[in-house]
Design a protein around this nucleic acid. Structure first.
Lengths: 184, 184
DNA sequence: TCAGAGTCTGACCGATCGGTCAGGTAGTGT
DNA sequence: ACACTACCTGACCGATCGGTCAGACTCTGA
């Protein structure tokens, strides 16, 4: 065969992310990916150092985007953080649905994964922003609800187009967080 | 050894539910359970027909409770369903945290499991109640958010005692659903 | 024309999985 | 004392997992 290497790699990533999202990381074998791609299992392992490496490369853009969101929110104090946090989080999850779903399904095993070592810390800080930096339990619980609800909605089938889904999510999240609804 | 059979069974269920909740169903082997219980893998399979049977028995009470909640909500129309649905759902998840976590982590693989065949249908109806029976997209998205957020909060470590967590969850859920906060 | 690099395969490896089985052990009724 | 039953074990099974490896094929530049 000997096809274009870079294109083959992205095809592997595509297929793997689709299978990981539907059957989970553990539930998808290299054999499954190879069958779908139309090559041997050994060919996958020629292009990638292992199953882990496929996952890492697949999640890399999402991990990067999360770090960027984190950096953007870092400078905002108190209430000023809430709206940008809600918007940024909704946009992030909408954009990386598939990766989030993979992450979401396999949290317990995944958190030990090296590629995600910084995710809990980032999530904690995002929660802090969503809670308006309040140390009180109630806003923090509400923030935790938003943190969980947004990915769940985005990875579920919805009849809404993304733009409208985004508006609804942001409005509802702000309600959950008990913020006034002065949002465009 | 030859210990008390019924007590041994419940001990196996206890250990298995703890391990399933922390490491996932697929991530927990019969060997792991046997080691924790302090018996051989074969002993587990003497008391249970297989790994599946352990999971089924473990989830049975939660599945039953979900069916009861479903029946209780079935008769309520429109807005009258919202508050009982929120309360019932919060109570259900609080009570069966561990089982919900097991379910929650492994949704893709689990939904094919025979013991959970009726769960999606029940979830859909619960969502319908949470949305106040509205066919509109916005209340349904908000209901989906609540549906996902409550288990996530209940299976996360929180500093709040259950009674207060329950109050906060119900209040926040009602806000998400855009209902007035006339709740005790 | 030929050497070498890049790509890919089938066969194979050790580990681990869920599950089976023959047989040993301990308690119980007679 | 004996047989019977319930309980439990270590050894083992086939399947599947992620991963390795020697070699074959193809393309390219000299």
């Amino acid at each position: 065969m000997a096809r274009n290497s870079s294109g083959f790699r992205t095809e592997i990533i595509d297929v793997a992310s689709r299978l990981f999202a539907t059957s989970g990381y553990k539930g998808t074998s290299l054999q499954d990916i190879a069958r779908e791609v139309g090559c041997s299992k050994a060919a996958l392992l020629y292009h990638f150092d292992g199953k882990d490496a496929i996952l890492t490369e697949l999640l890399a853009p999402a991990v990067r985007a999360l770090a960027e969101l984190d950096a953007r929110l870092a400078g905002l104090e108190g209430d000023a953080a809430v709206l940008p946090a809600v918007e940024g989080y909704v946009d992030f999850v909408l954009r990386f649905r598939r990766q989030v779903k993979i992450l979401y399904d396999a949290i317990p095993e995944m958190l030990r994964h090296a590629a995600l070592a910084e995710v809990p810390e980032k999530s904690d800080r995002l929660l802090d922003a969503l809670a308006g930096r309040s140390p009180d339990a109630e806003p923090r619980v509400a923030a935790l609800m938003v943190l969980a609800a947004v990915p769940a909605v985005c990875t579920s089938p919805t009849p809404l187009p993304d733009a409208e889904l985004r508006r609804v999510l942001i409005r509802s999240a702000l309600r959950t967080l008990d913020r006034d609804l002065t949002h465009p």
